[in-house]
């Protein structure tokens, strides 16, 4: 499988184009490309430091968020009901090729 392309808007508003490899979660793609995603829980939906915003059209194509994910997100800075995700909970999918991901503000 080939890589996905991603456009990432960081917390300063700069954009970065990067490659998302099939064996990475979205969090890993962000973190391993040097973006400031702390991911202090190692991707277990515990820390919420991997919070990102997706465009609504993209968000709507994804599955339901787990209860843990929802509870962490609901209290997050800038929470968007139809846009906030924990990037560690998003596996690679062809449908996410070319999407734009915005890093949520740090707390």
């Amino acid at each position: 499988m080939s890589n996905n392309k991603l456009t990432v808007v960081d917390r300063e508003g700069s954009t970065h184009d990067l490659e998302w490899e099939p064996d990475q979660t979205l969090m890993e793609a962000l973190r391993d490309n040097g973006l400031p995603v702390l991911a202090s829980c190692g991707g277990t939906a515990s820390c919420a430091t991997c919070h990102v915003f997706l465009e609504k059209e993209v968000f709507d194509t994804l599955g339901e968020r787990s209860e843990d994910e929802l509870e962490l997100l609901a209290e997050a800075e800038g929470y968007r009901e139809c846009g906030s995700r924990l990037s560690c909970q998003l596996g690679f999918s062809r449908d996410l090729n070319g999407v734009t991901v915005t890093l949520a503000p740090e707390e």
């Binding site: 509870e71 962490l72 609901a74 209290e75 707390e107």
Partner: peptide, 11 residues
């Protein structure tokens, strides 16, 4: 068994 208080707590 719930995380609703976790982030407010940290802050």
């Amino acid at each position: 068994a719930g995380l609703a208080d976790f982030r407010p707590a940290r802050k």
